[in-house]
Design a protein around this nucleic acid. Structure first.
Lengths: 123, 123
DNA sequence: CGGCATCCCTGATGATACTG
DNA sequence: CAGTATCATCAGGGATGCCG
């Protein structure tokens, strides 16, 4: 069995590369089926081309997505999730589920904190 | 059951605040018991006081940790995880477990990618 | 269509010094 | 002990323009 997991540099680095801002969106979308570059852009309207390219490269390098070049007319490039990427799906879903379940509590906590800060601080 | 979770701005923001570089370390440590400020610094040797302070404030604001001031001689401040923070423990463990299980595959993928890049690119 | 190259700017982080 | 304040750095991300 895998023993007590520890936060090490390598683990942290991997999580950073895989759970960063845009990678979550990309993986989320790609889990539902392959998409082309501009398809992804449309699916994630707020991302810039640069950030999307970077995220895709990172994910490809880490073996989470596959880049398939279809040498047709101009060119078509399809991105699809890999089996390794699939293993993250449950985790991501669990993460999103957690946020959905606890966001209300968190926002209450934030309100309390901000309120207390206002009283103690400037006001 | 909660339906298909979606990546929204609010969820993403929460994950950013809770899964960031130092918060993971802090939550990980605090799950094992309360610690004081410098205790945490010692437990996470690479963190600077500024980053640690920021992480603790963020976690406190989000209701994940509790800050207890013990008004003794100089002053003692104890940080302990809250019930809300506890709900993250399983997720964090699962995340770390995932990295531990898949790091080898990921590193193989990286090697392949870097190798292919080297051939296609510069040399 | 699917990128890469460039410039620029901001936010996050580190080092250092000082305070209740 | 437990921070706050300040300065310097630096990677990430947006805007823009060009290429196969």
């Amino acid at each position: 069995m895998t023993e007590t997991p520890q936060v090490t540099g390598r683990h942290r680095e991997l999580l950073d590369q895989v759970l960063d801002k845009w990678s979550l969106h990309v993986l989320d979308r790609l889990c539902e089926g392959p998409l082309r570059f501009n398809g992804l852009r449309r699916a994630i309207p707020v991302v810039t081309q640069k950030s999307l390219t970077a995220a895709l490269r990172r994910l490809e390098r880490n073996g989470m997505v596959e880049r398939v070049v279809v040498s047709t007319r101009p060119v078509a490039v399809e991105y699809r999730i890999t089996p390794l990427g699939k293993t993250l799906q449950d985790l991501i879903d669990a993460l999103l589920l957690w946020t959905a379940d606890n966001l209300p509590d968190v926002e209450r906590a934030r309100a309390r904190f901000d309120d207390a800060s206002a009283v103690a601080g400037g006001e």
